[in-house]
């Protein structure tokens, strides 16, 4: 058998809930796979849907957007906009044949350290199943 494929997942986390939740997982020393790397933004509403296309193009095998639960957004409405945008982005990606396991969204609150672990495990697992996404690669850092 080939060497185990290690997927590469890029995640966008809002500062107030999900990033804090991920920090809590850390403080609680909850272990999870190291295949996911986080970009911190202030709000899930900041995540430009084109970031997702870009991440997949740049080499991510999976993408995760995570924000506060609906109604808990630090900025009241940001995650509502995010939800609409990424619902549509997900549909679009699937429609052009991007494996649906590559795109994920979650609500993780600042107190959900263990949910964060579950989310990471799930997302990494799914990206692993989906395999490397070479067809769409750009493979070049635009420093």
């Amino acid at each position: 058998m080939k060497e185990q494929f290690e997927p590469n997942v890029v995640a966008f986390l809002c500062n107030w809930c999900s990033y804090a939740g991920a920090d809590l997982a850390g403080t609680s020393r909850i272990q999870y796979p190291s295949n996911l790397n986080v970009i911190r933004v202030m709000c899930s509403g900041r995540v430009n849907p084109l970031f997702v296309i870009n991440a997949l193009q740049q080499g991510a095998d999976g993408v995760l957007i995570s924000g506060c639960h609906p109604g808990d957004c630090h900025y009241m409405e940001g995650n509502f906009y995010a939800r609409r945008r990424f619902t549509l982005m997900k549909e679009l990606l699937e429609y052009v044949g991007v494996d649906s396991r590559r795109f994920n969204m979650s609500w993780v609150s600042a107190s959900e350290g263990s949910k964060w672990k579950d989310v990471v495990q799930g997302v990494v697992e799914k990206a692993k199943e989906a395999g490397p996404f070479e067809q769409f690669r750009r493979n070049k850092i635009n420093w």
Binding site: P70, F80, R83, R85, T87, S106, W107, V119, V123
Partner: peptide, 16 residues
Amino acid sequence: PLQSSYRPDDKEDFIL
């Protein structure tokens, strides 16, 4: 405009 609106109860079945 659709892109600048939302409803609190928009569907979200795929969200973890």
